[in-house]
């Protein structure tokens, strides 16, 4: 591309790009369906948050999306074989005790707990009692053995009622397989025939450690995970990508520059900032602009306490007092040299 062309696409100085971006995203928002559910694609993505609720979630920079999702690429040797990919997926896929347990019985006099497992759900999850017992023993620091009928007997070495009950609660909440928060993982094949894993949860740090996983190619729709692990640039790209995907999903076309600008604005501080009271708007320079948005009195009182000065450089505060806004036609000033300065 030539330099001349490059310049043709530049916006002019004083163009209110932020307002235009906000309108370009806000107007289609009014057309979007408020439904959360929609039925296409793979089982994991079938009930993913989409549409307006998802956009709001992104702009609010929520700590964890309401339907987290990981896409885990595998190392060469694992990606070519389904068996190996499945092996990796098994290590990730999160199964909770509650989903394989039938019921739990405590024997307080002996300090033992009997966990009766549901053989059907065990089979469905491709699990046996032995590894579960081993994991329980390791994680809870108790002695867990497999007894008759494939049940697990946990010896607590205590007869204290409270302590036994505390362990029971821990057992019911325990994770019997996979990584906490990783959700159910499934092996998927891409266009090139390579296998990778999709998972309906997000916890990328431990997933990276799993054998066979390519730690550089993990993607999650959780912005904060991406920020924590890969940095702010990755978080910016994830944000832009997720916004774009959500809009495309609803057949809404918004120019990429608007989306990029919003993602840039939200990450320009080096951290993820939401758009709202706790983020970008709440950190505006002008006291009046902040007071005009939300929590008017709080901002005014703080401004008074710290002796803040409003330099009237933004749009909102200038409209408020009735001045010409420093944007568009208001961004230029006429400067005439006075006769005195000419003489010099």
């Amino acid at each position: 591309m030539s330099m001349a062309k490059d310049h043709e696409y530049n916006v002019q100085a004083g163009e209110p790009v932020g307002v235009v971006a906000a309108q370009s995203l806000g107007e289609p928002g009014t057309q979007m369906v408020l439904r959360t559910f929609h039925m296409t694609g793979v089982a994991a993505t079938a009930i993913a948050t989409s549409g307006l609720p998802r956009i709001i979630e992104l702009l609010d920079a929520k700590k964890m999306p309401s339907s987290p999702l990981m896409r885990i690429r595998l190392k060469e040797s694992y990606a070519k074989s389904f068996a190996k990919a499945d092996e990796a997926a098994k290590k990730i896929s999160e199964i909770k005790m509650s989903s394989v347990m039938r019921h739990i019985v405590e024997n307080f006099s002996k300090g033992k707990i009997l966990v009766v497992l549901n053989t059907q759900s065990l089979q469905a999850a491709d699990l046996t009692a032995r590894p579960i017992a081993a994991r329980l023993g390791k994680e809870l620091g108790v002695e867990a053995k497999v007894g008759e009928h494939g049940n697990i007997i946990v010896s607590t070495h205590t007869k204290n009622l409270k302590e036994v009950r505390a362990i029971t609660v821990k057992i019911t909440k325990a994770i019997v397989n996979g990584i906490e928060g990783a959700g159910r993982a499934m092996v998927v094949q891409d266009k090139n025939g390579d296998f990778y894993i999709e998972s309906a949860g997000s916890n990328i740090e431990p997933v990276m450690q799993v054998e066979g996983v390519d730690p550089e190619k993990i993607y999650t729709n959780d912005l904060f995970s991406m920020y924590r692990v890969f940095g702010i640039e990755a978080a910016r790209n994830t944000l832009a990508l997720e916004l774009r995907k959500t809009l495309e999903d609803q057949d809404i076309s918004v120019n990429d520059r608007h989306i990029s600008l919003i993602a840039d604005a939200m990450t320009s501080g080096g951290t993820l900032q939401s758009i709202g009271r706790h983020g970008l708007v709440g950190k505006k320079e002008s006291v009046f602009a902040r007071a005009a948005f939300e929590e008017t009195v709080k901002h005014l009182i703080n401004a008074a306490a710290f002796g803040e000065v409003d330099h009237m450089r933004g749009v909102t505060e200038n409209i408020l007092v009735g001045k010409q806004i420093p944007l568009g036609t208001g961004s230029v000033k006429l400067v005439i040299k006075s006769k005195e300065s000419k003489k010099k």
């Binding site: 004083g14 209110p16 307002v19 409209i319 009735g322 001045k323 806004i325 036609t329 208001g330």
Partner: peptide, 19 residues
């Protein structure tokens, strides 16, 4: 409506309306 004039950069028209 105000936002529309801001987006268009019509600062004097906006001032006329608002003031």
């Amino acid at each position: 409506e105000r936002d529309v004039l801001v987006a268009y950069g019509a600062s004097l028209l906006l001032k006329e309306r608002m003031l």
